[in-house]
Simulated scan of single mutants.
Amino acid sequence: MKPLATFRDEYLHEAKLLIKQHNEYVADCKLQGTEPKKDDRLTPYAYINETNNIAILNLMKLDQQINEAANNEIYNHISYKNRIGRKVTLI
């Protein structure tokens, strides 16, 4: 199983990359005089300012994604399932 720090590094990298791309896209749209389209990929990681469409990292949302992924890996790991299976058969 991956340590929690690995999940944090992976999700933080993805979040920063998506936010950077989105903000560059918004700046380009502003230069072109067009309206930027909504990007749902940012929802789990960022707050998007409604007035200027700039995305800002939301640490609480990011933390929720990290913990969900780590918990899913723990509960889906074979050793956890074997341990639970033994407890059920003992009852």
Score class of each variant (00 low, 15 high):
1 M>A: 15
71 N>Y: 15
44 P>S: 10
10 E>T: 06
74 I>A: 07
31 L>V: 12
27 A>C: 04
37 K>M: 11
24 E>C: 08
54 I>Y: 08
61 K>T: 01
73 E>V: 05
29 C>I: 10
17 L>Q: 10
47 Y>E: 07
34 T>Q: 05
49 N>V: 07
16 K>W: 04
38 K>E: 12
84 I>P: 04
69 A>P: 01
12 L>E: 06
35 E>P: 04
19 I>T: 02
60 M>G: 13
62 L>S: 02
16 K>A: 05
77 H>V: 01
30 K>C: 08
68 E>I: 14
10 E>W: 02
87 K>Q: 13
82 N>H: 06
30 K>Y: 11
36 P>F: 03
2 K>A: 06
55 A>P: 01
64 Q>G: 12
69 A>D: 02
7 F>A: 02
2 K>P: 02
2 K>D: 09
76 N>W: 10
58 N>F: 04
39 D>G: 05
24 E>K: 11
54 I>Q: 07
66 I>R: 05
4 L>C: 09
82 N>S: 05
21 Q>P: 01
33 G>M: 09
75 Y>S: 15
72 N>I: 13
58 N>Y: 06
80 Y>I: 10
5 A>T: 10
10 E>Y: 05
83 R>D: 02
16 K>C: 07
38 K>F: 08
10 E>V: 06
20 K>T: 13
5 A>V: 09
6 T>I: 11
42 L>G: 00
58 N>Q: 10
28 D>G: 15
13 H>E: 12
80 Y>R: 09
82 N>Q: 08
77 H>I: 05
9 D>C: 04
36 P>K: 01
71 N>G: 12
3 P>G: 14
83 R>M: 02
62 L>V: 00
23 N>A: 06
70 A>N: 06
7 F>P: 00
86 R>H: 11
42 L>Y: 00
86 R>Q: 14
60 M>V: 14
22 H>Q: 01
32 Q>E: 12
23 N>P: 05
27 A>W: 03
75 Y>L: 15
27 A>N: 03
79 S>M: 10
46 A>P: 04
71 N>C: 15
70 A>D: 07
78 I>S: 15
77 H>E: 06
50 E>I: 11
20 K>N: 13
58 N>G: 05
25 Y>F: 06
43 T>S: 14
91 I>L: 11
74 I>F: 13
78 I>E: 15
53 N>W: 07
88 V>K: 12
50 E>A: 14
90 L>E: 15
87 K>E: 14
9 D>T: 09
21 Q>N: 11
6 T>K: 13
26 V>D: 00
58 N>T: 03
32 Q>A: 14
23 N>S: 09
59 L>V: 09
82 N>W: 06
18 L>W: 00
39 D>W: 06
60 M>C: 11
84 I>H: 07
42 L>C: 00
46 A>F: 03
77 H>L: 04
